[in-house]
């Protein structure tokens, strides 16, 4: 293994820090070697490599927004870096050395890109974006101990639970009983959901289902004893295929559904908080810029910092609900402290 010659103060600092660490923690020799390898690559840290799941749609939207945000001087923090973006070719092969030269961090966009990047070894730290929290945690679990969060972090698509619950409080003041229909992906959220709901003075009623035929009966039971349904992302319960019957059932019970996407609100959910690819890109740009120079250790996975609120006015009207404007709701939610989950 060779260490590239240090260039400039930045790299020197990194190099000396590495040496100190290697001396003080000699038992972690292997790890240090790995980090040293990275540090060598990071000498020209001004490049971010983008790996898109597909060269289309939301991924392009993200990529364009990221480039724009990184080039926008108004968004640059005082003394912040200027970063360059290169796009890696899609594919599961590990990119060659030449492509990764000078790359300080890889941004993997979407779950497919995350899976590809997860299989790579000895690459710069990977920031995963446009990924659901459960998908990320699953990959992390599959990788076992070989992957540290500082080297493989994420900005989730999932809104923090406290934000979604605060939305319920804002649009449905006085409604206390929140129903949650959980499936395989969302069931693990329950231990975090309970205290979050209790903190806001709300009550939860929940059921767990494992397959599609169970959904409507369980939903009916929940709706008859609750005020509002909170949809949590799940690959069985709240999918494209089930949206129709779920929304029709909630409407038949005249109960609002709080969704997790703009699409759900268009389809008939009362309201949702959600983040667009551009909003995630803005957060990613800020994160990348704020990374300490040199070897980048990524922060722990984050929830979206920038978000929007969508309200379906037709549904609000049909349920005889008077709901503040989306901008007012967004401002109110942005001002509330987010409780750590």
């Amino acid at each position: 293994m060779t260490i590239a010659p240090p260039t400039g103060n930045l790299a020197r600092t990194v190099f000396s820090r590495l040496l100190r660490r290697a001396l003080s923690a000699s038992l972690a020799l292997l790890l240090c070697l790995g980090l040293a390898f990275h540090a060598g690559r990071a000498v020209a840290v001004e490049t971010v490599a983008l790996l898109l799941s597909e060269h289309s749609g939301h991924y392009i939207e993200f990529s364009d927004a990221l480039s724009a945000a990184l080039n926008d001087p108004a968004l640059a923090p005082a003394g912040g870096k200027t970063l360059r973006v290169v796009e890696l070719p899609p594919g599961s092969e590990r990119p060659d050395e030449a492509r990764l030269a000078g790359v300080g961090a890889i941004v993997a966009v979407g779950a497919k890109a995350m899976r590809i990047a997860a299989a790579w070894e000895g690459v710069p730290p990977v920031l995963n974006v446009l990924v659901p929290r459960t998908s990320y945690e699953k990959i992390l679990a599959e990788g076992g101990r070989t992957r540290r969060r500082a080297q493989f972090s994420a900005i989730y698509l999932d809104q923090p639970l406290s934000r979604q619950l605060n939305l319920i409080r804002q649009v449905l003041p006085g409604k206390r009983r929140v129903a949650a229909l959980l499936g395989p992906d969302s069931a693990p959220l329950l231990p975090r959901l309970r205290p979050a709901i209790a903190r806001l003075g709300l009550e939860i009623v929940s059921e767990e289902v494992g397959s599609e035929p169970e959904i409507i009966p369980a939903l009916s039971r929940l709706l008859s004893v609750s005020d509002v349904m909170l949809a949590l992302p799940d690959s069985v319960v709240f999918t494209r295929d089930t949206a129709r019957s779920v929304l029709l059932t909630t409407y038949r019970y005249q109960k609002p559904l709080i969704g997790f996407s703009q699409g759900y609100v268009n389809a008939g959910a009362l309201a949702a908080t959600y983040s667009t690819p551009a909003q995630i890109a803005r957060q990613a740009a800020e994160l990348l810029r704020a990374l300490p120079p040199g070897r980048a250790a990524l922060p722990a996975p984050l929830s979206p910092a920038y978000f929007s609120v969508a309200v379906n006015r037709s549904v609000a009207r049909a349920l005889a609900l008077d709901i503040p404007s989306e901008a007012a709701l967004q401002a109110a939610l942005a001002n509330l402290p987010e409780v750590e989950q």
Binding site: L130, T134, D185, P233, A243, R244, L247, S261, G263, A267
Partner: peptide
């Protein structure tokens, strides 16, 4: 136990309008 894993399209895709104004 389920058909497909959760992906970003669950968050980002459009859904067909179900509760259209004519149904409400």
């Amino acid at each position: 136990a389920h058909a497909g894993a959760l992906s970003e399209s669950d968050f980002l895709s459009d859904l067909p309008v179900v509760l259209s104004a004519t149904r409400l």
